[in-house]
């Protein structure tokens, strides 16, 4: 019963990822693609949680945190590139 529910949740997560991939391919502007990538990151994170429940292991807990951190840093780097044109500034212009 619970296994079936988790399998259904995995299928729904993968369906969401497919929709986000469509937005990445067809997205008219760069921010659309960045938001879709962030959404794929969050959905992968949730899928890993469901898979670790399915496999009944605690070995993937660190993977969830690391994927969250990397998705956060990647989104920030992309949005800074879109807004400023540089990712790492040499000196703040104030």
């Amino acid at each position: 019963m619970v296994n079936t529910l988790m399998l259904i949740a995995l299928i729904l997560f993968s369906f969401t990822i497919v929709i986000a991939v469509y937005r990445i391919i067809r997205g008219p502007s760069k921010p659309d693609r960045v938001i879709a990538l962030d959404m794929i990151g969050v959905n992968l994170l949730a899928s890993i949680a469901v898979v670790s429940c399915l496999l009944e292991t605690k070995a993937f807990m660190e993977v969830i945190l690391i994927l969250g951190i990397l998705s956060f840093i990647g989104t920030i780097a992309f949005s800074k590139y879109i807004e400023r044109g540089v990712i790492v500034e040499r000196r703040h212009n104030r």
Binding site: E62, I66, L70, I73, I76, I87, V88, R90, R91, H92
Partner: peptide, 24 residues
């Protein structure tokens, strides 16, 4: 799971987050 390699990469990504928010 874990070890020196992943820990080092995570520390480097924390410093990269500082570099993104502030400047060099």
């Amino acid at each position: 799971p874990g070890g020196g390699f992943v820990g080092g990469l995570l520390t480097a990504s924390a410093i990269v987050l500082l570099l993104l928010a502030f400047d060099i």
